[in-house]
């Protein structure tokens, strides 16, 4: 009876309503502590000043404020960097898996160099070194820096996903006479998607978050907008909480889209 009771308790604790309640209690405690702390240091909360940064009531009616534009900046930057990063990552992974000794070496060196430099330093290299050399402005430098950094990391995700497809698939595809490119395109890559989706989702979320780093060279995106508003208003607490919430909303939407894709690509073999 005692065992059944224990199992019953565990089931109750794991149910959705109880989880939500526990989550709310934890969040309440965190916010409460922050508020208390801020109060103790005499912080004057001015949340009422935040909505204007989302929607402005101008002469031409209601228009988007600075924060939505910052969000658009982040999404644009991340989308372009993501598209390039996928290309770079796939290329590096295929080189790494190829029969070409030079190709494998180039891919390995690229990966190790990029992976072992802090993103901030890499950004400085792109902006202050490559920028003047290749005539890149700050925006191009930012996109390329993010693409190269995350492309290197993605190449390992691609490599892992490709390697996870059974060897027999290669042999069957070869024995019908397909070329290597056809085998990747029609047989291997479609099957590796399901192995790549979970780590790829984390990587995309990581990339959106790390795109904040371009605020150090004043490219307009969410974090830069936050910094600008704070330098005008000194509303550090309210703005940083808000910016954090906007990032979270964006990445949570992406994560749930990814889990939808995972269900769609689930294959039994």
């Amino acid at each position: 009876m005692a065992r059944a009771g224990k199992r019953g308790l565990r089931r109750v604790m794991a149910s959705t309503p109880v989880s939500v309640v526990i989550y709310l209690i934890v969040m309440f405690l965190i916010v409460e502590t922050a508020l208390k702390g801020a109060e103790a240091m005499g912080y004057n909360w001015q949340w009422y000043r935040i909505p204007q940064y989302f929607f402005e009531d101008g002469d031409a009616g209601i228009v988007l404020g600075e924060i939505p534009w910052g969000l658009v900046g982040t999404i644009t930057l991340s989308t372009m960097a993501f598209a390039l990063a996928v290309g770079i990552g796939l290329l590096v992974a295929l080189l790494r898996l190829s029969d070409l000794i030079v190709g494998r070496a180039v891919a390995r060196v690229f990966l190790e160099i990029v992976r072992n430099i802090p993103l901030l330093v890499l950004l400085y290299v792109f902006y202050y070194v490559f920028g003047p050399i290749f005539g890149m402005d700050r925006y191009v430098a930012s996109v390329l820096c993010l693409a190269v950094f995350h492309g290197a990391l993605m190449s390992e995700i691609f490599r892992g996903g490709i390697a996870a497809v059974a060897l027999g698939q290669w042999e069957a595809a070869k024995s019908v006479g397909m070329s290597t490119a056809q085998i990747y395109r029609y047989i291997i890559l479609p099957q590796s998607v399901r192995f790549m989706l979970p780590p790829m989702t984390s990587e995309v979320v990581n990339m959106i978050k790390s795109s904040a780093i371009v605020s150090v060279i004043a490219v307009v995106e969410l974090t830069t907008v936050g910094r600008n508003i704070i330098s005008d208003t000194y509303l550090s607490f309210e703005i940083w909480f808000t910016i954090a919430a906007v990032y979270m909303a964006l990445t949570l939407i992406i994560s749930s889209f990814a889990s939808y894709l995972e269900r769609r690509y689930a294959v039994t073999d």
């Binding site: 027999g168 698939q169 070869k174 024995s175 019908v176 006479g177 397909m178 029609y186 294959v267 073999d269």
Partner: peptide, 26 residues
């Protein structure tokens, strides 16, 4: 390889394709 068909111990069908697609992809 186009003139030599091969059948494997483990079948090695393409699991993401239907039976007909397995046959027509080659």
């Amino acid at each position: 390889r186009q003139d030599v068909g091969m059948v494997f111990q483990q079948f090695n069908l393409f699991p993401h394709l239907t039976v007909l697609e397995n046959l027509t992809i080659g």
